[in-house]
Design a protein around this nucleic acid. Structure first.
Ligand SMILES: [Zn+2]
Ligand SMILES: [Zn+2]
Length: 358
DNA sequence: ATATGCGGGTGGC
DNA sequence: GCCACCCGCATAT
């Protein structure tokens, strides 16, 4: 925080969140809700969003055992197991709850598209060497540094505001209005006898949410290298140059004390296939009882174990809550009855450890 | 109830 | 040691 600084008229990220000394910038980036790709941004110390470590992506705290740097990892997106297309052409891409307990309740719920028999499931993020994209936050007197690693290989979840709106609507009272659009049975509290199996989440309003494509951004990254296999990895991608969303802000001049030599080497991996596609219907991935439905979750232990080999990196969906199925999505429609078991195991694994690695 | 953070602890490499 | 994660606990909405 003191001493001399070397002026670098270079570009914005010549620093790394792990550097012992981060630069003192003279210009800040504007808030980037959907920062994607390997990027580094510097926000003003009073930026509300930055102070909240917010993001459009559903990021959860992770324990990196580093009190100076907050680390978060992406939870992916909540999609329909059948990848259905809504009447308006949109797809289901809800926001995974950050709270573990709430997230577990989301899974297995019926697809909000009442014409669809699918169920909601988490599409884990594997944008960083097969692992979830990570965000790092570091505060200094003069700025809040942000660094992301990896390229989301899934659609953007609905905005946080939308998610919150829904939650507040459905939580306390009976879902009305929006939910009614596509939803019908949810209107009736229908006693608690029924499992949330029948109640569709009040996610209908998602139907109008626009979807900006996954994050196909392909670009060259400078100053960043990834050690994962060329195939299947796009960690090194830096969205910055995209006019789109990635990060990258306009030049930001600042001075710093150190600068590490960038190691050029990235993998121009083609974008990930869009998660949204015409519903296979036929050879679907989930033959009905195979999908992580509520019931399945109940006996999920078995399921996850036997299917795990398929996924070298399954982030988090560890079906272990035998009751998650009975409950509803988020506050959706608090069935005033079935709540007892809800208070089962609640945790919210937030992990974070050391910061950025490669 | 859910969002966020914290931090000890485990297990793999 | 690094790192992804588990898990209980605390605080604020
Ligand atoms: Zn569907
Ligand atoms: Zn992601």
């Amino acid at each position: 925080m003191s001493g001399h600084y070397t002026r670098l008229s270079r570009q914005h990220h010549d620093w790394d969140i792990n550097d012992s000394n981060v630069p003192r910038v003279s210009e800040y980036n504007r808030w980037e809700e959907w920062a994607d790709g390997h990027c580094r941004l510097v926000y003003p110390p009073h930026s509300e969003e930055a102070k909240r470590h917010a993001s459009g992506w559903a990021m959860r705290n992770t324990n990196n055992h580093n009190v100076h740097i907050l680390k978060k990892s992406c939870l992916g997106v909540l999609v329909c197991s059948r990848r259905c297309i809504l009447p308006n052409g949109d797809t289901v891409h809800l926001r995974p709850a950050i709270c573990d307990k709430a997230r577990k309740k989301q899974q297995g719920k019926p697809c909000p598209n009442r014409q669809c028999s699918g169920r909601l499931e988490i599409l884990p993020c594997r944008g960083h060497c097969g692992y979830p994209v990570t965000h790092f936050w570091r505060h200094t007197e003069h700025a809040i540094f942000f660094q992301a690693k990896g390229v989301h290989d899934h659609q953007r979840p609905e905005a946080k505001s939308t998610s919150e709106a829904r939650r507040s609507l459905g939580a306390g009272r009976r879902v009305r209005g929006l939910a009614v659009i596509l939803d019908k049975d949810s209107e009736l509290p229908n006693k608690m006898s029924m499992l949330n199996e029948n109640k569709r989440p009040s996610y209908e309003l998602e139907a109008t949410h626009f979807t900006p494509m996954p994050s196909p951004s392909l670009s060259i990254d400078k100053g960043y290298s990834c050690s994962c296999p060329p195939f299947e990895c796009a960690c090194a991608v830096q969205t910055q140059a995209l006019g789109h969303t990635g990060c990258g802000g306009p030049a930001l001049s600042y001075s710093t004390e150190e600068w590490y030599p960038p190691t050029e080497h990235y993998y121009p991996e083609p974008s990930i296939p869009p998660p949204y596609e015409i519903p296979p219907l036929g050879g679907d991935l989930f033959p009905q009882e195979e999908s992580p439905t509520l019931l399945d979750l109940g006996s999920g232990l078995i399921r996850s174990l036997k299917e795990s080999p398929e996924q070298p990196f399954q982030t988090d969906w560890y079906p272990q809550d035998p009751f998650s199925e009975l409950d509803v999505l988020t506050g959706e429609s608090s069935q005033e009855s079935s709540n007892d078991f809800a208070m089962f195991q609640q945790h919210g694994y937030y992990y974070h450890q050391n910061t950025v690695s490669h």
